[in-house]
Amino acid sequence: MNALEIKNLNVSIDGTAILKDFSLTIPKGEVHALMGPNGTGKSTLAKVIAGHEDYTVDSGEVLIDGENILGKEPDEISHAGLFLAFQYPLEVPGVSIANFIRAALQARLPEGEDINAVEYYKNLYAKMDALQMDRKFTSRSLNEGFSGGEKKRCEILQMSMLEPKYSIMDETDSGLDIDALRVVSEGVNLMRGPERGFLVITHYQRLLNYIVPDKVHVMYDGKIVETGDKELALKLEEKGYEWLAPAGAGA
């Protein structure tokens, strides 16, 4: 199937269950928003899908276009077409953005094949122009000393260069002022299309004014408790999350 499918996923860390029988399907071409209060497992979900080793997967499946990716190394999952925009992108001192993206693309090529540097820079600059980024940006060390907005822009640039099949945006809006939010949203909107699916994780409805989702899911205590359209997000903004708390969740 042409989708990112998460089926009955149960995940724990040090014996504490975090994801509880979590299921979600994002077909190609759609943008799904995942909302919910802090500590409900949204970021865990993103990391588990990307192959982070700190979590124990007790059962379930994650499929990219029918291919199971659970248990694979993070780089293999990346090559399979998954991109995770980090909530807190990490700094790698001394490595320029341009060299980093180039290394990431090079890693996708068969052994003995080298990236064409001229084509690479042409492509990089075209993407930067589309995202209205200054060309000096890519000679800076990856995320080192970046403002919150710069870090997120850097994530969007990487995403647009790697052209994933599915992108998970983990609280991309956190720490952004309204201008940065607009730039980041435009980046995502530029990449929307029939060939790509998005899972946008966010606390707040305001991001969804810029990235209009096809579906909105609400997560609570490790699973999805409500699904709707963008109206649901507005309702959440108004009423909060409490009314969705499952009985006995102890919230």
């Binding site: 990307a50 991109f83 995770l84 990431a104 890693a107 990487q158 790697l162």
Partner: peptide
């Protein structure tokens, strides 16, 4: 380990 995970998420092997 988080820096390594970040870079691997972009497609680099652990060694790379």
């Amino acid at each position: 380990a988080e820096q390594i995970f970040y870079m691997m998420q972009r497609g680099l092997s652990e060694g790379q």
